[in-house]
C-alpha cells in the first residue's frame, strides 16, 4: 500500500506492507533511528512520537494508520541546529543515562508541557507513567521536565 506521511515537516511517500508498524516505517524505511523499540506490548513508551500533535506509541500503530498525517520524532525537536528546551533540560538536569528511553521520554514530556505549561510534580509523574526508564529512577527526568517548563515559559514571555 502507498502511504504519504509528513515526518518532521518533510513529505514521505512509500509503498509498504499493510502490516508494517509505524515505528518500522520510521526506523527501517526512513532511517530515522532516534525512535526506539523497547517492548512489544505498548508498555514502555520508547517509541513515542507525535502523530497530528498527539503523543502515540509508534509500535502500536500501523504505518497506514498514519497515512496523510503529520509525525514528529525526536529528530524533529531541534530546529535550525538549536536544541529544543526539553533537550537542553534533559542535558542540564542529567535526565538520561543510557539514553535509550530518552527520545520517547522527551516526546511525552513535550505533550505534558503542551497540556500543563506549569506542571506539578504529580502531573509530570503521571504524565510519564507510560514511559519506562530503568536507569534514572525518574528523579532527574522529573527535574528536567520542570526545568524545561521554566525555559519554555521564559521563551513564551520573550515572544509576548
Amino acid at each position: 500500500m502507498k502511504v504519504t506521511i509528513t515526518v518532521n515537516g518533510a513529505k514521505t511517500t512509500h509503498d509498504v506492507e499493510p502490516r508494517l508498524l509505524l515505528v518500522h516505517y520510521l526506523r527501517d524505511v526512513l532511517g530515522l533511528t532516534g525512535t526506539h523499540i523497547g517492548c512489544d506490548t505498548t508498555s514502555c513508551g520508547a517509541c513515542t512520537v507525535h502523530l497530528n500533535g498527539l503523543a502515540v506509541k509508534s509500535c502500536t500503530l500501523l504505518a497506514v494508520q498514519a497515512d496523510g498525517g503529520e509525525v514528529r520524532t525526536v529528530e524533529g525537536l531541534a530546529r535550525n541546529g538549536q536544541l529544543h528546551p526539553i533537550q537542553e533540560a534533559f542535558w542540564e538536569e542529567h535526565g538520561l543515562q543510557c539514553g535509550f528511553c530518552t527520545p520517547g521520554m522527551m516526546m511525552t514530556a513535550l505533550q505534558i508541557l503542551e497540556r500543563h505549561p506549569k506542571p506539578t510534580e504529580d502531573q509530570i509523574r503521571h504524565g510519564l507513567e507510560g514511559n519506562l526508564c530503568r536507569c534514572t529512577g525518574y528523579q532527574h527526568i522529573v527535574n528536567a521536565v520542570q526545568a524545561a517548563a521554566r525555559k519554555m515559559e521564559g521563551q513564551n514571555a520573550k515572544r509576548r
Binding site: T33, G34, V74, E75, A78, W91, L96, G99, T102, P103
Partner: peptide, 21 residues
C-alpha cells in the same frame, strides 16, 4: 560537568546496535 555523550542521545543521532545498517 554536563555529560558530553548526551547531545547525540537527545537528538536521536546516537547509534545503538539495531541502528547499525
Amino acid at each position: 560537568v554536563k555529560r558530553r555523550d548526551d547531545p547525540q542521545l537527545i537528538t536521536g543521532k546516537a547509534t545503538f546496535t539495531d541502528d547499525v545498517t
